[in-house]
Design a binder for these strands. Structure first.
Length: 961
RNA sequence: GCGGGGAUAGCCAAGUGGUCUAAGGCGCAGGACUGAGGUUUCUGUCUCGUAGGAGUUCAAGGGUUCGAGUCCCUUUCCCCGCACCA
């Protein structure tokens, strides 16, 4: 029977998130609580989270950023704003097709990822259809947002690409407008290219060379026979130190007609030259050995140099011809030394054994810390024996770095003498170009091998469509707007925006494969992912009407968008072209004018370098000034238990898994608490679990505690503290610092409540009740389901949601600094007593019989007060007062201590200290289980401990019986 | 390589010169409660210490200062971006 009662009690008080949370999610939906409509009596607030990509489940990372957005949205709602938080989906590009294709091939990793997101084996073969994939993930993603309790207005949903034809129309309008404004134009662009697959090789398509980009090599034309021998180099300035040329004796070379000139290059260079927009015709093929021993002519220095054999020459790299600068290039030095030391390497090719002997090193760069011939020095120092030694590469890097940063051109470099190496490249290239001595050749910085195992080269794509992010005026406008008008959270992220705006060049905005909206004027091209996701937030404002009225793409002509978003077309034209009623069009216009621009947008920080910056650029190009975006938050990545999350690595955690395990509120708490600001966050399961426990016990406490109505001193104290916490917490929310908001709005208040309990035993008064309920309000943006439940069961609110309660307002009149200081003094005294007890070894610790506390004499407070006026000489200043002077040595010592430690201070006077401690006598008696606790003015006692009393730090004497 | 951000105790993290004592959370240990477990709560959690003390610590090394986790320099390591890819 007793057991039964206990169980009943348990179930009664048990807070069960798995029942409470769905209940409130349903009620919010039924009441259309988060559906925001135009309401001119209220200020609007539009907040957005990037459209989620539909190639996988919503995971913890989405959850992390979503919590920044949702808690901010909920905070603003409590401040009285008419908040709209729309959400759409992203399907543009290759990845969704990629999933389908990998699945067709039976890829096991892909199958595992799909199974993890809840796909049964039976359904698996449907996922070979991209459309099915995006629909599937869309459905699940929306469900996950709802399960988390995100306060989204779902009427404004859409998906990119022709999967949602009205949205495609919006993109068509966007790009036609950008083109009209001159921001979209045609151009060429180099890409890493696979000649076998006939397509650019993206990072994910590479067997080798992930993340490798291309470098610009300078091809220099050395007159040779009736044409040119053309080495390619990254260091054109070393042309002043060229002593000979290197050719691989066994290499396949060709004589070819390149843009009307005759070039001698490796056979493998031909395809690169052709793909880099040169006209090329092969005349004949030959082996390298054929021209070894001949001479060519150096441009600039105007001398003949010999062509010599070298095995280190990589024939398939650049042009397969290398100019030799043995003074500064380790490979060249070693190769030359080899030839001189082994005459048979020369005689083998029919050359005289002393053929290379007359070649002397030419030093042409002076670098601090190096001799005349840095290559020679480093080779000898590192003990490199031959040109095939791998250390030679390392030596090359070292010299290149040093010379580039610290080196300057020597006197033998003509008009360039004295120029820094780091500056010369651009100057020299310009000069050489004028004389038509050079040409550009792009080559991957490191070897790139395609999945099809073909070695890749660089191809320059023609007729590419670009967005002119490199446009100087557009950049300046964007930069000005960013620096003058935008709020960026956290502040560190601003640097990244500035950097990105400066660095951006024209960006290719269309591709030929994947999903996407075709460019209206050139339909074989599809607008690519990062380009169709820049201003879609404007579409949210009209999406509700388009969805509800089922408006067809043909009813959305450019004139409509021009009228709505740019004030360009007239209403009459718009009605005529769209066939929509005036009423409907004006309704759309009103929605847009009311809700736009997005006030707030949050995303992971890596998107600053593309998406978030494009977002600013394009808004400035397309929309009127009053509709430019306002605040951006960029957060770090989320890690799980300090490990990077990776889908293929198998430690990816879906949002749904978290919610099933901990409940929505505990998950929200965990996500909000695991990080903030620019550095990476780490989600910890233990934290989410602890949050769940705290929520349950908090609920029990709220529902079961009876409060007294008598307001005591400690109630005033906690209320005073509370006002400060309200101010702090509101500030943290405003700065999107969810972790700090939980710190001040939850943990700090909880600690104050603990102290309150310790001080007042079993009585919980109005202050405690205030703290408890205010805490719930402060946390409503983080744990809304809980807040709703409290609102209903405790506040007995019949209609209206906790989500719309006003955010607590601090009452500054209730802040009592003196009272707080007095309470702090009590805490300090407790800590000191604890310190004393701690210092006594446990086994010898006896029951204390009496504790006596000595309050420092008032003249010491006077010294503190005098010091606050910052006199030049404190000791001199205090001696002008007789009451201090008569304490002589003691006063001087205290003054000296204060000078040494400027931080020591206390503004309470002796009388306040006395009252405060006296008020806490019962507390101390209880805490230490003693009969006698006495407070005495130090001036009235001869006890030795009375002497150590200082303001803010009373003397303490403990008697043991 | 270039640009940006970092490195604080077992873990996460607050802390941009001043109470000679480095918040808070998690975890862990012990006590209380319980038949037990969980919850809750108290105490402890760098070292030494029978009177509130002493010493050592904030990636490493150096410097500035009466005083440095905090400012400066050097080094090492980590994260993000470097594009046509979402």
């Amino acid at each position: 029977m007793k057991l039964l009662l206990l169980e009943v009690l348990c179930t009664m008080s048990e807070y069960d998130p798995s029942k409470v949370e769905p209940k409130w999610q349903k009620r919010w939906a039924d009441a259309k609580a988060f559906e925001a409509n135009v309401d001119h009596t209220k200020k609007k607030f539009m907040t957005t989270f990037p459209i989620a990509y539909l190639n996988g489940s919503i995971h913890a990372g989405h959850g992390y950023t979503t919590m920044k957005v949702d808690s901010y949205a909920r905070f603003k709602r409590m401040l009285g704003f008419n908040v709209v938080f729309p959400q759409g989906w992203h399907a543009t590009g290759q990845p969704i097709q990629g999933v389908a294709e990998r699945l067709k091939k039976g890829d096991e990793v892909q199958k595992r990822i799909l199974r993890q997101s809840g796909v049964t084996d039976k359904e698996l073969d449907k996922f070979t259809d991209p459309l099915h994939i995006s629909n599937y993930y869309k459905k699940h993603a929306k469900r996950d947002f709802i399960l988390l309790g995100a306060s989204v207005d779902w009427r404004r949903e859409f998906v990119t690409t022709p999967l949602c034809p009205p949205f495609s129309r919006f993109i068509e309008w966007q790009y036609e407008t950008l083109k009209k404004l001159g921001y979209v134009k045609k151009g060429t662009h180099p890409v890493i290219w696979c000649s076998h697959c006939q397509s650019p090789t993206g990072d994910h398509d590479r067997l080798k060379g992930e993340g490798v980009s291309y470098s610009e090599f300078i091809v220099i034309k050395f007159p040779f026979e009736d044409g040119y021998l053309v080495p390619a180099t990254l260091r054109p300035e070393t042309i002043f130190g060229v002593t000979n040329m290197w050719i691989h004796p066994d290499g396949d070379y060709v004589e070819a007609e390149v843009d009307g000139e005759k070039w001698f290059v490796s056979e493998s260079a031909i395809i690169k030259l052709m793909d880099q927009l040169h006209t090329v015709k092969i005349i004949r093929k030959f082996k390298g050995i054929e021209i070894i021993g001949k001479s060519c002519h150096t441009p600039v220095r105007e001398e003949d140099v010999k062509i010599l054999p070298a095995t280190f020459v990589a024939v398939d790299h650049t042009t397969g011809v290398v100019m030799s600068v043995p003074s500064h290039a380790p490979f060249d030095y070693v190769a030359l030394r080899d030839l001189k030391n082994n005459p048979d390497m020369l005689t083998k090719f029919g050359l005289a054994s002393d053929f290379a002997d007359d070649i002397t090193l030419i030093s042409m760069i002076k670098t601090e810390g190096f001799g005349d011939h840095p290559a020679k020095d480093i080779i000898e120092k590192m003990g490199i024996e031959s040109q095939d030694d791998p250390k030679t590469e390392e030596a090359t890097q070292t010299i290149y770095k040093e010379e580039f940063h610290k080196g300057a051109m020597r006197e033998n470099c003509g008009k360039y003498a004295g120029t820094k190496v780091s500056d010369i490249k651009d100057i020299l290239i310009k000069d050489l170009e004028v004389d038509k001595i050079t040409s550009l050749l792009f080559e991957p910085a490191e070897t790139v091998i395609c999945r099809c195992s073909t070695k890749n080269h660089v191809k320059i794509l023609k007729d590419q469509w670009f967005i002119a992010y490199g446009d100087a005026k557009w950049k300046k406008k964007t930069m000005d707007y960013l620096t003058k008008k935008m709020d960026i959270y956290p502040p560190e992220a601003r640097q990244a925006f500035v950097y990105t705006i400066n660095w951006l060049r024209d960006k290719a905005c269309a591709r030929k494969s994947g999903l996407g909206t075709p460019l209206p004027w050139d339909t074989e091209w599809l607008v690519e992912t990062l380009s169709d996701s820049t201003v879609y937030m404007a579409y949210y404002t009209i999406a509700r009407i388009i969805n509800e009225k089922d408006i067809k793409p043909e009813q959305l002509p450019n004139e409509l968008f021009d009228y709505l978003f740019r004030n360009k077309a007239t209403i009459e034209e718009t009605i005529e072209k769209s066939g929509l009623t005036k009423e409907l069009i004006e309704e759309m216009k009103e929605e847009y004018e009311y809700f736009y621009p997005p006030d707030f947008r949050a995303s992971a920080k890596e998107l600053i370098f593309n998406h978030l910056t494009f977002y600013i650029f394009q808004h400035l190009a397309l929309f009127p000034k009053n509709h430019y975006p306002l605040e951006i938050e960029a957060n770090g990545m989320i890690m799980i238990e300090s490990e990077k999350m990776s889908k293929s690595g198998g430690n990816s955690v879906t949002l749904k898994e978290l919610i099933e395990k901990f409940g929505a509120d505990a998950t929200r708490f965990g996500l909000a608490y695991c990080g903030e600001g620019y550095s990476d966050a780490s989600f910890r399961f233990a934290d989410a679990e602890a949050a769940g426990r705290r929520i349950r016990t908090l609920f029990n406490e709220i529902t079961t505690t009876t409060f007294s109505t008598e307001e005591k001193r400690i109630d005033q104290w906690i209320i005073s503290r509370l006002q400060k916490k309200i101010i702090e917490t509101a500030e943290h929310y405003q700065n999107v610092r969810t972790r700090s908001a939980i710190g001040s709005g939850f943990f700090d208040i909880l600690n104050d409540m603990k102290w309150y309990e310790a001080r007042s035993v079993n009585i919980k008064g109005p202050g405690y009740r205030d703290a408890l309920l205010t805490l719930v309000d402060l946390l409503t943006p983080i744990i809304p389901h809980f807040a709703e439940e409290v609102n209903e069961t405790v506040r007995k609110t019949k209609d209206g949601f906790a989500s719309f309660r006003p955010f607590p307002k601090a009452d500054k009149k209730r802040i009592k600094n003196k009272l707080e200081q007095e309470e702090q003094l009590v805490k300090n005294v407790k800590e000191d007593i604890d310190g004393i007890f701690n210092a006594i070894k446990k086994q010898e610790k006896k029951q204390a019989s009496k504790i006596e506390v000595f309050i420092a004499p008032e003249w010491m407070n006077k010294i503190l007060k005098i010091r606050r006026d910052k006199p030049a000489n404190l000791i001199k200043a205090i001696m002008e007062y007789d009451d201090i002077k008569k304490n002589g040595n003691k006063a001087v010592k205290y003054a000296q201590k204060l000078t040494k430690h400027p931080g020591i201070d206390s503004t309470l006077n002796a009388k306040s200290e006395f009252t405060a401690i006296t008020d806490a006598i019962n507390y101390f008696k209880r805490e230490y289980n003693i009969k006698e606790f006495q407070v005495t003015y130090a001036s009235k006692s001869t006890h030795p401990k009375a002497n150590v009393a200082e303001p803010g730090r009373p003397g303490i004497a403990i008697d043991f019986s």
